[in-house]
Write a protein that binds this DNA or RNA. Structure first.
Length: 611
RNA sequence: GGGGACGUAGUUCAGUUGGUUAGAAUGCUGCCCUGUCACGGCAGAGGUCGCGGGUUCGAGCCCCGUCGUCCCCGCCA
């Protein structure tokens, strides 16, 4: 028999009461976390979002309540009324914030029962993520998940407050909008009113926010859902949330300061200190030092050590001269046995590309004719990493192109990227030893970085054309425009584009935009887009640009990714209330689904399944 | 589109060389217990070994296919 609530109201949450509250009569409501039945004495742990409080049902004190507690089971919803009582010194539970007290219940109401749950919210996450996602409402009862959502809420709130204080307006932009192909695949929504016409869900509010700048709104932000129909990853969901902002008349640094400001605040509200300003690094530097455009600064950089090799050494080690030779330091790598070294060597040879070789500096050091070389490599790497010396337990690997290396390996960018990948693979493999990825509770846990001066154009091997590396509204450096490099030297045109990187993860990116219609036209032409084609795709925007567009720029950061790092989670699914699986399915509501013929007919759609 | 890992009780897992009736823990059910807090004790129920096909005297185990979850590459301006 379930009880009715009547006019009862909860007086406290389950995480609230302390020793000082002893003697008060209180009403608590919550879920049965655990029940311990000692016959005439029953303990119920009552749980809500705020914590857990122990309720005691004594048969002598409250025979009716005790009888109900006998029937209560995990996840039943209970209302307990009684006195807050200090626990005896021997029965205090120091593991619980409420462990000094308990509720001596005089009355117990069973407000609702529960089926036996497939897993217990009182325990850690189960391995079976399918079941977790199907019963997401139970999974979210776990304190860990509630905590993650709390971090998310606090971070978003701190950002709003900061941006509000800086004079930003939060302005909503449409979800039902127009497809502007390029970039990611769009999610499309068919129009009922306009047969064979489709809205697209926004991949980002990019053009709208730029138009808001044209409108003179000056400072815009939005914590906004974005949609991209691409394959998922642990750090990629088809719908995700961005903190999106745009400003009028900014320098790049103006944007950086705003972002640093709200990040500092939003880390602070969850008890984390970060140092600002963040480090700045150009794209070229990032590639040379880390082999990637989103360097993880928790690990030492790579060092080009080609200068320390003599011609004889190059030739006897069969290394192609004139190309980068990259040294990688993996911190705190313990010593290996010879057997382990051999296996590791084989693994590395398989891992590096065919035209690359790697050298083990330990082995160089052991060979008399190379001992000096090994010392020079060590010294160069140590200097570059800001170390006094490379400790012997820090394995040093050198990647270099073999003699006669062919096309891809002769390309510096390709070579740096390969070495950079190896650097990350090795770091991941030895993470238990060097512990560089573990939180230490200091500001050093968060290595922020602005990567600037991205190349404007990117060579597309497939189409054999120059394509934009960012999006086509990104402004090139004014100097490069003035020098006419757009046509004379596209490869070396720099974009006023920047990424913010945190611990090797791309947290967001932005740019100073093009505000002049003539420059925008020049860009489209440089990309091989006819005026007509540009008009067809972005006509509304090109039109708007002609009505007094101010210089403007902005940035967008992935809120989910940020919270994921703050929560110490390894997947976005841990910080999104209702996420999708790797196949983009929502297991709880079971979406997507087929729809009725009637619905399709209204939308003028007939599905054709191609096999 | 490609590669990899996994799939056995509600859950977490074990299951030997292919060989009797597929096990453990936990959860669940019942009974007992007045100081537990992962309570304890006794008893019990619980299985389409993801699904389909094949090999075999015999398949959880081997083979083929398929579905699902996860991770990675491609993709993600």
């Amino acid at each position: 028999m379930l009880d009715f609530l009547g006019t009862r109201q909860r007086t406290h949450t389950c995480g609230q009461l302390r020793a000082a509250d002893a003697g008060q009569t209180v009403t608590l409501m919550g879920w049965v976390n655990r029940r311990r039945d000692h016959g005439s004495l029953i303990f119920l742990d009552l749980r809500d979002r705020y914590g857990i409080t122990q309720v005691v049902l004594d048969k002598d004190l409250a025979p009716e309540g005790h009888a109900k507690a006998e029937q209560a089971r995990p996840e039943y919803v209970i209302c307990a009324i009684g006195k807050v009582r200090l626990r005896g010194p021997e029965s205090v539970n120091p593991k619980m914030p409420t462990g000094e007290i308990e509720i001596a219940a005089t009355e117990l109401l069973v407000l609702n029962d529960s089926k036996v749950p497939p897993f217990s919210p009182a325990e850690d996450a189960i391995q079976n993520e399918e079941v977790r996602l199907k019963y997401r409402y139970l999974d979210l009862r776990r304190p860990e998940m509630a905590h993650n959502l709390e971090i998310r809420h606090k971070v978003a709130l701190a950002m709003r407050e900061y941006l509000n204080a800086q004079g930003f307006f939060e302005i909503e932009t449409p979800f039902l909008t127009r497809s502007t192909p390029e970039g990611a695949r769009d999610y499309l929504v068919p129009s009922r009113v306009h047969p064979a016409h489709f809205y697209a869900l926004p991949q980002s509010p990019q053009l709208f926010k730029q138009i808001l700048m044209i409108s003179g709104l000056d400072k815009y932000f939005q914590i906004v859902r974005c949609f991209r129909d691409e394959d998922l990853r642990a750090d990629r969901q088809p719908e995700f949330t961005q903190i999106d902002l745009e400003m009028t008349f900014p320098q790049q640094e103006t944007i950086f300061q705003v972002v640093e400001g709200f990040l500092k605040d939003s880390f602070e509200v969850v008890g984390e200190q970060i140092a600002t300003p963040f480090l700045r690094m150009t794209y070229d530097e990032a590639i040379r030092q880390y082999g990637i455009d989103k360097p993880d600064l928790r690990l030492p950089p790579m060092t080009d050590v080609r200068d320390v090799f003599t011609a004889e050494e190059l030739s006897s080690l069969k290394i192609e001269p004139g190309l980068p030779i990259v040294a990688i330091v993996i911190p705190n790598k313990q010593a290996m046995s010879n057997t382990q070294k051999k296996a590791f060597a084989q693994e590395l040879n398989a891992a590096v590309a065919p035209d690359l070789a790697y050298l083990d500096v330990d082995r160089l050091a052991a060979a008399p004719q190379y001992a000096a070389l090994a010392q020079h490599i060590d010294a160069a790497a140590a200097k570059n990493c800001g170390l006094a010396r490379v400790e012997p337990e820090n394995r040093l690997i050198v990647v270099s192109p073999r003699v006669g290396a062919t096309a891809p390996a002769r390309d510096h960018l390709w070579l740096y990227k390969k070495a950079g990948q190896l650097r990350l693979d090795l770091a991941k493999r030895f993470q238990d030893e060097h512990k560089a990825f573990e939180k230490k509770g200091i500001s050093d846990d968060y290595k922020f970085l602005w990567v600037t001066d991205f190349p404007f154009f990117e060579w597309d091997e497939e189409t054999k054309t120059w394509t934009f590396a960012h999006h086509p509204f990104t402004s090139p450096h004014e100097d490069d425009l003035i020098a006419g490099r757009m046509t004379s030297d596209p490869e070396n045109v720099r974009a006023l584009a920047y990424d913010i990187v945190l611990n090797g993860m791309e947290l967001g990116s932005g740019s100073i935009r093009i505000h002049r219609q003539d420059v925008q036209q020049q860009i489209f032409r440089a990309l091989g887009m006819s005026d007509e084609e540009a008009r067809e795709r972005f006509g509304f925007f090109l039109e708007a640009l002609q009505y007094g567009t101010p210089p403007h720029g902005g940035v967008a950061l992935g809120l989910d990714r940020l919270v994921m790092i703050l929560a110490g989670a390894s997947s976005l699914r841990e910080v999104i209330a209702f996420p999708k699986t790797a196949k983009a399915i929502d297991l709880m509501v079971d979406a997507p689904t087929p729809v009725s013929d009637a619905q399709l007919k209204e939308l003028h759609i007939r599905p054709v399944i191609r096999s």
